[in-house]
Amino acid sequence: MEEVRADGRNGQQLRPLVCTRNLLHRAHGSAQWCQGDTIVLAAVYGPKAGTKKGENPEKASIEVIWKPKTGQIGKTEKQYEMILRRTLQSICILTIHPNTTTSVILQVVSDSGALLPCAINASCAALVDAGIPLKHLAVSVSCGLTQNGSLILDPSKVEEQELQAFVCMAFPNSPVTVLPEASSSKEGEPMEHGIITSTSYGSMSVNDYLCCIEYGRAASAKISEFLRRSLETEHNP
């Protein structure tokens, strides 16, 4: 039905996922997320007392520090920091530890495409590892539109450069609950279909974008399942 990609995957296949937690001894929580050859290591310190100037002291504040593989941080890294901070703020329960700061430090180990989704997944796992109270998890995936109009999930760096457009998105994970009313839905759309974060590059039609979101949702259910399973297993470092 569709063409095989350079690394042998078809359009809807993700690269193999690996999530390792509790790698760093000094950090309060840490996790490494691998998506094929893209590897991001996240460390969480906190909650530490006090917030920075300009932050709301009635809420917990989150600080994100992005460490690139090599060199200084530039505008792209600043943008990643901002997107990550706002994404993590939306999944944490900020009223539990008011007037504290939680630092999330991300170290890029290797980048071969889909860096931002990988970083979101890594920091989410690290927050769980540190025991920071969360509303729900965030799972993130990227989806690209190729020049000939087909959609591919989780593009690698080589593929990313040839894409007409690509979208990074983060969704809440699907809740497991025994309460029937707990799965809140609106106009027939369940809560986990809502988008926490979306960034897109390149021009495409609105319909293509909505298709990307649909693809992303389907994939995020799989990643969510993987994340849940990997968080349930105990690690013995």
């Binding site: 994404t87 759309e189 809502g194 960034t199 897109s200």
Partner: peptide, 12 residues
Amino acid sequence: LYKPGGAALALT
């Protein structure tokens, strides 16, 4: 289409 986080979720 740029939505950096935030408390509300964007449904279709």
